[in-house]
Design a protein around this nucleic acid. Structure first.
Length: 110
DNA sequence: ATGTTGACATTGA
DNA sequence: TTCAATGCCAACA
């Protein structure tokens, strides 16, 4: 499969999310070349929760753990992120200002 | 084959 | 400014 499917592309990016960092669906969608298909990204993660990927580092645009309810334990996501040093605000949302990671930023710094 | 749903994002009024 | 509607891609019934 020379051309990875949408599924593989998203999984690849999620697997490349640095430790203690998070990203959003919109950025992932844009990174795979399908800007606007953020919904499909979430669908992929739904099948990647048990794929051994750090899918818990993917949050929505507001930094809220939208998919926490889809994990084996609803608190696993928040617990995992806190375990990596990720901080949350009073609303329980990840501080994207401190941990937001953009795909390609690590392989292509400014 | 068609319609609906889904861990979202963006634009228009 | 806030609220509502639409778009996107893929899988499921």
């Amino acid at each position: 499969m020379p051309q990875p499917d949408f599924f593989s592309r998203v999984l690849d990016l999620v697997a490349h999310i640095p430790y203690g960092r998070v990203t959003t669906y919109g950025h992932l969608a844009r990174a795979v070349g399908s800007a606007g298909s953020a919904r499909t990204v979430g669908w992929v993660l739904s099948g990647a929760t048990a794929s051994g990927l750090p899918c818990h580092r993917v949050v929505n645009r507001f930094g809220a753990l939208s998919g926490a309810q889809h994990f084996p334990s609803p608190t696993f996501m928040e617990d995992a992120l806190r375990s990596e040093g990720v901080t949350f605000d009073d609303e329980g949302c990840v501080r994207l200002d401190r941990h937001l990671w953009v795909p390609g930023d690590d392989i292509k710094p400014v």
